[in-house]
Design a protein around this nucleic acid. Structure first.
Lengths: 109, 109
DNA sequence: ATACTATGTGATTATATAATCACATAGTAA
DNA sequence: TTACTATGTGATTATATAATCACATAGTAT
């Protein structure tokens, strides 16, 4: 891969990571892993304002993480690809490793 | 897991994702996957200012993604855990899926 | 028609992030 | 000692992000 393509890849990777890098958006993803939901229910579940949730959903749609469809008055959001959930697993794995290191350190004191 | 713990987990997950969500930081990680490097060489490799690179490195150290050691005048940085690289693979996988969807769409036109 | 509900968006404000320059510090070399 | 190199950090500025409120729109129900 040449330098230009590599930098483009880094940009896109950063974009997708940034789209996930917010506690509320992670909460939304974690909720949607069990199935599609309307904005109203999502907002209730993550305990945040509808308009704010709507904005976070739009961010994730615009970078291809979520997709949505209209159903009467409601708009239903769902994961666009299951692989999105892998990010959350990676994060959990890293956090577990960090916790283990801390335990080791604590025992060494 | 109770609600409070869950929200703490989301916070930590978001933190680690945010620490990776920048093109320059991804470039640095991609460089460090092949072995530890000093700030000077990293800066040269990613073609950015030393002080700026230093700041990005500090961000990743502070959230447990990188670690460093002094070697004379130099400070050598390395990945703290290989699992960090999994994030980049996840991102690449997602981008490939998106690209495939676009190809399908293109063919359908 | 009116009233209601779900959603999205403009405007605003507060805060966070990023890049740059100048400078301080720490170690090296002569 | 002086000169040099690698690094980190304070100060500044520009930009991005997030949250909130008010309002507009679209669909539903009566």
């Amino acid at each position: 891969m040449d330098k230009k393509s590599r930098n483009m890849l880094y940009d896109r990777q950063a974009e997708i990571l940034k789209a996930l890098a917010h506690p509320l958006r992670i909460a939304i993803l974690d909720y949607l892993k069990d199935g599609e939901q309307c904005v109203c229910d999502i907002a209730k579940h993550v305990a945040s304002e509808r308009s704010n949730v709507s904005r976070h959903l739009a961010i994730m749609v615009s970078c291809g993480v979520l997709e949505c469809r209209k159903d009467g008055l409601n708009v239903i959001y769902r994961l666009k690809a299951r692989c999105i959930l892998d990010f959350l697993e990676c994060a959990t794995t890293c956090l577990k490793q960090q916790a283990n290191e801390n335990v080791k350190l604590l025992r060494a004191i």
